[in-house]
Simulated assay, not measured.
Amino acid sequence: MRADLLDRLLVTLAVRLRAFSVCRIQRGWQLGFSPFEAITIHYVLRGTGSLRVGAGPWQAFAPHSVIIVPARLPHALGEAEEVVGAARAEDHCLLHGDGLVSFMAGDGTPDTLLVCGQISASHDGALGLFELFQSPMIQAFSSDAPLRGTFELMLAEVAAPSLGTQAMTELLMKQCLIVMLRQHLLGGDGASPLLRALQEPKLARAIIAVLEHPGAPYSVDSLASLAGMSRTSFAVRFSEVFGQGPMDFVQRVRLRIAARLLTATDLPVKIIAGSVGYASRSAFSRVFESTYGLTPSDFRSFGGGDEVEPERRENPELAPSETSQEP
């Protein structure tokens, strides 16, 4: 994959990764989780164990691993065999400190320690990268990798929680997540859902164009031409790979970039609207509010919508046009 595509993908990966818990598991125990609407990410700070999602097989994990669990699936962590006991997370929950909670399995000294976060389905970034994860994934980092220090910092934070622990933990978790994505996109496991979806040179040409010039007047025909494919073949293949139509993708990229500009700059809404391809502020505001549940000005006031979850409501009148500048 071209380095410029990777850079653009990471830039547009404007997900909000929220740290929410610390998991403590004693050897021989299992800790079970009911399905979450959000994607769950566990960071293994200490100890070993296994992961099981739904009725699938147990998969081993080691220290300094990142575990991604798809949304809306139950999962369990801990001992795969010779189980001494099992606990449901919601039944063994205590306040940990600074906004974090502890889930515990076992009544003795925990052998395995994890810090856990979630990515809301409504904060999945411009490309919907994490929607491509339909099965669990475990990424282990070697003990001498640069990220070892990051895991140690997370361990120190959760071992002695204080003011700012949640914010600091979220920053460290995001760093690990970006490194993991970089490894996958630059030539990791060929079975990675990210690689399968993004390592198609023809589609990549169209993707790069949209990311580099989001305000251009795209249509399915123009994107197909960039990819060197017929209109029908391009539209069908794009939908197969990304689970969305080409113009839906264009709209999501534009709105995600606009959302970042709203929270990271003081640019007027009208200027932001024009920079991402909308002919008027009013047209941009209607589509933005339909997607995020907030006007652009309110979204900026809420600091990116952290306090109010954006809503993705279907509105046929605001469907992207294949020939207009306004998606």
Rank of each mutant, 00 (worst) to 15 (best):
D4C: 08
R8C: 10
L9T: 09
T12K: 13
A14Q: 11
R16W: 13
P35F: 01
P35C: 04
E37A: 13
I41T: 15
G47N: 05
T48C: 10
T48Y: 09
A55E: 10
G56T: 12
F61L: 01
P63Q: 00
S65C: 08
V69M: 07
A71N: 11
L73E: 15
G78H: 10
E82I: 05
R88Y: 09
E90S: 11
E90T: 04
D91Y: 00
L94W: 11
L95T: 06
G97D: 02
L100F: 03
V101H: 07
F103D: 07
T109R: 09
L113N: 03
D124V: 09
L129S: 07
E152W: 11
A156E: 04
A167C: 09
T169H: 02
T169N: 08
L177T: 13
L177H: 13
P193A: 12
R196E: 06
R205L: 13
P214E: 00
S225A: 15
T232D: 13
F234Y: 06
E240F: 03
E240I: 08
V241A: 14
G243S: 08
G245P: 02
P246V: 02
F249I: 05
R256G: 07
L262P: 09
T263C: 08
L267V: 02
I271T: 11
S280R: 00
F288C: 03
Y292R: 00
F299C: 01
D306P: 06
N315T: 11
E317V: 09
T323R: 15
P327T: 06
